[in-house]
Nucleic acid binder design. Structure first.
Length: 112
DNA sequence: ATTCTAACA
DNA sequence: TGTTAGTA
């Protein structure tokens, strides 16, 4: 995982900050969690800790809700997106590997 | 002061 | 979803 991705997934934001960032009520944020739309980590005394990706996710949820989608629909959409993201990531790695192989065969390029 | 869970008008 | 009670 890249450093950039690591920072994006750092779960350190308390719900109060997320509330201001997303303009959602804490009630709504907790409700979306119950329905599996987000999965913030828990820290000190069971308090939720959100990452920047969680904030991003919540903003997307708000848009989908405005668009008239149910929480159930949104969950499916996210799962579908996650599947595709994992796929393209894999084909990306596969492409890099095969290119490395080709260069290695040709010889003049050090793979390392 | 903040956040958490559970529950109700 | 809003709101409130009783906690940690």
């Amino acid at each position: 995982m890249s450093g950039r991705e690591l920072r994006r997934n750092l779960a350190i934001l308390p719900i109060g900050t997320v509330r201001e960032l997303t303009l959602l009520t804490d009630r709504q944020i907790r409700y979306y969690e119950q329905h599996g739309l987000i999965s913030p980590k828990r820290g000190d005394g069971g308090q939720r800790r959100f990452s920047l990706n969680d904030v991003d996710q919540l903003l997307n949820i708000k848009d989908h809700l405005d668009a008239g989608d149910s929480t159930k629909d949104i969950k499916e959409i996210f799962e579908k997106q996650a599947r595709k993201a994992r796929q393209s990531k894999n084909t990306d790695q596969a492409l890099r590997r095969s290119l490395q192989d080709e260069f290695a065969k040709i010889g003049r390029f050090d793979v390392r």
